[in-house]
Design a protein around this nucleic acid. Structure first.
Lengths: 139, 139
DNA sequence: CCGAATCCAGAACGATACTG
DNA sequence: CAGTATCGTTCTGGATTCGG
């Protein structure tokens, strides 16, 4: 268990560990880059919309169908936020009935990297996590 | 740019990509393991408390000083949640005045792995992210 | 020193109905 | 089909006060 220093992956010269970050700046607050980036994508639907678009360009109604339980309002709102972030592109075709397509930008695609790491951690601790989540929503 | 399939890291047999996850289950909702694990740690202070404890065992008052802007209530509450998750251990010494120490469990330490990935993504896109965060809090 | 209890403001989210 | 507007609820987090 060498998670803290992640030596295994440090072949890459530019790889930065949490310890190194804390060494540079041990005061912790909202200016922490980790806190900032997490707060941008950590709401109820953003993650799911990003994942759906990882499969490729989709229309509004396709997203609506694929993402169970999302309301039209929240879908639109989440997409608008992601567009303002520069993570999603919107293309509207001047047709009747209207057709609108959404796809990820390069920046949007880049989120796959940290999300994949989170996925593999989640799978490794899945039993624990699922139990905790159930308890959480039970409240 | 091969973020979606992360071939570079697939030397590891067990490595799972987002595409593979979506292939197994293309319906997206709150049962998605990624959504569940993210929702457990994605609140205002959890991340900062975890990071502080990555440096080692600490007392309540040390955490209070190091984490700028956190109120005693939110510190206690966040610690209690992390203890209930099994990510943090609490040791109380029967002294006067009381002394209480907190440290990470193996599960807590394991969060360093996804967090380090998020950190390196954040640093790669730092300029973009900091700008977006500023706009977000301005609202 | 450590933490519990209470009250409250604001944000996030959901349901519904409506427009081009 | 895509998106907007309005309203109401729920949840989060902050301020303050009190107790062991």
């Amino acid at each position: 268990m060498d998670a803290l220093n992640s030596e295994a992956r440090k072949e890459n010269e530019n790889y930065l560990t949490l310890q190194e970050l804390l060494h540079v700046k041990s005061d912790l607050d909202e200016s922490c880059i980790l806190h900032q980036s997490l707060s941008l994508i950590a709401d109820k639907w953003t993650l799911l919309v990003l994942m759906a678009l990882m499969q490729g360009t989709k229309r509004n109604s396709e997203l609506q169908r694929q993402i169970k339980g999302i309301s039209p309002k929240m879908l639109t709102q989440t997409l608008k936020t992601l567009i303002s972030y520069g993570m999603v592109d919107r293309k509207a075709y001047p047709e009747v009935p209207p057709r609108v397509e959404y796809c990820l930008t390069e920046f949007g695609i880049s989120t796959a990297d940290p999300l994949t790491a989170l996925l593999n951690w989640s799978v490794a601790w899945e039993e624990q996590l699922v139990k905790l989540y159930k308890e959480k929503v039970a409240r």
